[in-house]
Nucleic acid binder design. Structure first.
Lengths: 218, 218
DNA sequence: TGACAATGATTGTCGGACAATCACAGTGTG
DNA sequence: CACACTGTGATTGTCCGACAATCATTGTCA
């Protein structure tokens, strides 16, 4: 349990937070489920104060929500939350696409696209989803702005959380990849308008897909 | 000290965090200054664990920075940090301006502009600065997306922090107001391109101003 | 001068304690 | 029977004290 790796620079709090993130993303803890301090302290073998700090980290990332005097629960996303997340992503990613269509170095994006395509070809759902999100992050990264990338990461984290509890069937993975490849091509050609349109369409489609799946899971 | 207001729903941690924010924004605690847990606990009359939680809040807001085993210090912004902040603001606010130029209700923006102009007319520097930042936030608010507004708030918070230690001479307040008024006019006219250009120019000018002042303060 | 050890300050984590608050079940009353 | 009230247990919010680990600094010695 206490894996004291060669050089473990991370604090106990960080490790607990990481462990909790894993649980959430794996779907072991579904939205709305309470995160009790004492019980978590026991399972992780740490003090309650440490768990509290870890929970505060998760809360500041939006993965968990604190209700005063009632505890912390796994964040539940409403339909309007989903809409907000996709709206925010559109703002950030389209700004990245604009930069990409007007000169920014596209190498990182093409690299992300390649790994995405590879994962999809191998029908590895987990890796595919991850690579997909990585690709979108790479769009924001075109802006060369760590703060914006961090914001984008928070958004995708929230999404992963919402989707963890839902069966992640993305049968048309190949078609998805083609869409993204088209986006990159448009950027490379400097077609700003076209690239933005492609992105907008893709995100809109993804939003309805996510919303529908989420609604179905209740 | 313990002002038990009529209905005080806030936790001790929240109050300490708020107190710390006040100290930072007032410039009482300059960038780089350490925030010692025990000493803060004594001055606020609370336990060290409570201070730790408050410090974690400040840290997650970017106002403070934690160096493992060495403590928390007031965040110091480098020149590249400033550039990043303004870059991020441009992304968020120009998206808001786009929305404003294509139909979004401009009432909140005009209201913010009015209070800004009032403050500037009265030569109230503190209020003027605050209203100025409020105006820019209102641009992002046009997107009707709480997550993006929160991100914008963090950015302006970082800026306020950087400027707190610098003498806040904004002698040309009237000219500034005129710039913003022009921006609103362009939005109202639906001149997307023009409004974006106006915003871009304004932010660029502000960036050099801030950078210069910050460099001079060393 | 420069490597090294001793020292003091501070953080990271632990454990326990207790009041305040919440959720809920049981009780009594109209 | 509906409804307000009260008691009870669980949980959080906050406090306190403790101690090892780490860092910064100072003093020592080759």
């Amino acid at each position: 349990m206490a894996d004291t790796s060669p050089i473990d620079r991370s604090s106990t709090t960080d490790r607990v937070a990481e462990g909790l993130r894993d649980l959430l993303f794996a779907g072991d803890l579904g939205p709305g489920e309470p995160l009790r301090e004492v019980s978590l302290a026991e399972t992780f073998g740490v003090a309650r104060s440490t768990v509290r700090e870890a929970l505060q980290v998760l809360t500041s990332e939006g993965l968990a929500t604190r209700f005063p005097h009632r505890g912390v629960v796994v964040t539940e996303l409403s339909e309007s939350d989903i809409a907000e997340i996709f709206g925010a992503r559109l703002v950030l990613e389209s700004a990245g696409v604009r930069a990409g269509a007007t000169g920014a170095d596209l190498a990182p994006v093409t690299r992300a696209l390649t790994t995405y395509a590879d994962a999809a070809r191998q029908d590895d759902e987990v890796r595919t989803t991850h690579a997909h999100l990585e690709f979108h992050t790479s769009l924001v990264a075109l802006l060369d702005n760590a703060r914006l990338v961090a914001s984008a990461d928070v958004l995708t984290g929230d999404l992963r959380l919402a989707l963890a509890s839902v069966e992640r069937a993305e049968r048309n993975a190949r078609a998805q990849v083609a869409t993204h490849r088209r986006l990159v091509t448009l950027m490379r050609a400097g077609d700003e308008r076209g690239a933005i349109d492609e992105l907008t369409g893709h995100l809109a489609a993804a939003e309805v897909s996510v919303t529908r799946r989420l609604a179905a899971s209740q």
